[in-house]
Simulated scan of single mutants.
Amino acid sequence: MDRQRLLLSGLIATAFACALVAAPLPAAACTLKEMQAGGCSVDSGGSTGDEHVDIWAEMLDSDQPVPSTGDVTQEEAVSEQEGSDEWAADESAATPSRPENCSPVNVALCAVPPALPADPAAAVPGVVVTLRDIASFVPAGPGSEMEPGGWAVEDLPANFVAVASMQVVSGMLLGQPADVRFTPVGYRWLHSDGAVVESGSPGATWAVLGQREFSVTGTSHVYAESGEYTVALEVVLRAEYRFAGSGWRSIAGTLAVAGDPQRVLVGEFDTVLTNGDCNTNPSGPGC
């Protein structure tokens, strides 16, 4: 009895499997290109293939969005793509730039080189640039003018004017190309009679000052005796330095730069009354 039941169950299972094999498979889904070409038909709910193609054609001719194979419309796909682009842009901005030949195998190529400091002195703690460090940066010496030109009258002021201005000298400092700027901040005239005249300004001519000749000025000097003298001008300079790409940095202290000595001839002059010049009165004083 049990053998008959098993045999009957096997026959039923075999018949069910054959029915499944004999049943036609559902038609494969058509692509949009196949539908447009008219080479594909889909039987969906009793509709013919031609009806299905007409539906797709109407959707293509109209402004209605065509659904994708998933459950996402074109608007949602565009919105999702824009969000993806924004995320990629944020990631790109957050990621530091690396060399083009960066390779995970060679880690050294992927390293971003550190930026070099614009000021080597600032990069090394405790390093201070001094006047001794800029000894190779030599500014030009100042010039000096006087009035009257090259001579003076005993016991009357002679006026002196310095010719100096700010200047920049280039060279090497701490192994790097650098500039040193020298700015005049003081003036000192050294006279051979022992007198020293100091001023915070370079002085000016009597005409510029609006004064009469032989007037006392902030840079004038009076020679008490006749003779030949010399005067040397020293300009006191403040120094600053800079490297390429950095601002000016002050250097503590000042330095003095001297110009060439200038010769001054001092004479004694007497004031006398004359009756005309030597042409009209050849016997007059001094003729």
Rank of each mutant, 00 (worst) to 15 (best):
M1Q: 14
L7H: 14
G10E: 15
L11S: 15
T14D: 03
T14P: 01
A15Q: 11
A15H: 06
V21H: 02
A22E: 05
L25R: 09
C30Q: 03
K33E: 11
E34P: 00
C40E: 00
C40K: 00
S41Q: 10
D43H: 08
D43F: 07
G45A: 03
G46M: 04
S47Y: 01
S47R: 10
E51W: 10
H52Q: 07
V53N: 14
W56K: 14
E58A: 09
M59F: 00
S62Y: 03
D63G: 02
Q64W: 08
V66T: 04
G70K: 02
G70L: 03
D71Q: 00
D71W: 00
D71L: 01
Q74I: 07
A77W: 08
Q81Y: 13
E82A: 11
S84K: 04
W87Y: 05
A88C: 07
E91A: 08
S92W: 08
A94K: 03
P96G: 01
P96Q: 03
P99C: 06
E100K: 15
N101K: 06
N106K: 04
A108R: 11
A108G: 04
C110F: 09
C110A: 08
A111R: 11
P113R: 09
A115S: 11
L116C: 12
P120S: 12
V124C: 12
L131W: 15
R132T: 12
R132I: 09
D133L: 07
G143K: 00
S144R: 01
S144P: 00
G149P: 06
G150P: 14
W151K: 04
A152W: 01
V153Y: 02
E154I: 02
D155W: 05
A158C: 02
N159A: 03
N159E: 12
F160T: 01
V163S: 06
V163H: 05
V163Q: 12
Q167T: 05
M172D: 15
L174M: 14
R181F: 11
R181Q: 15
R181N: 09
P184W: 15
P184H: 13
Y187P: 10
L190N: 13
L190T: 07
D193Q: 08
D193R: 10
G194Y: 06
E198K: 05
S199W: 05
S199A: 08
G200D: 13
S201P: 08
P202M: 04
P202W: 05
P202R: 07
G203W: 10
G203E: 06
A204R: 13
E213V: 10
E213A: 14
F214I: 06
F214G: 01
T217P: 13
S220A: 00
S220C: 02
H221D: 07
E225S: 15
E225N: 10
S226V: 01
S226H: 03
S226W: 00
V231M: 05
A232Q: 14
E234H: 08
V236E: 13
R238W: 02
E240Q: 12
R242L: 02
S246Y: 00
W248G: 04
W248D: 03
R249I: 04
R249C: 08
S250N: 12
S250R: 14
A256K: 04
A258R: 11
G259Y: 04
D260A: 07
P261G: 00
V266Y: 10
G267C: 09
E268A: 12
F269I: 12
V272E: 11
V272Y: 06
L273C: 13
T274G: 14
N275R: 13
D277R: 15
T280C: 11
P282V: 09
S283N: 09
G286T: 13
C287L: 07
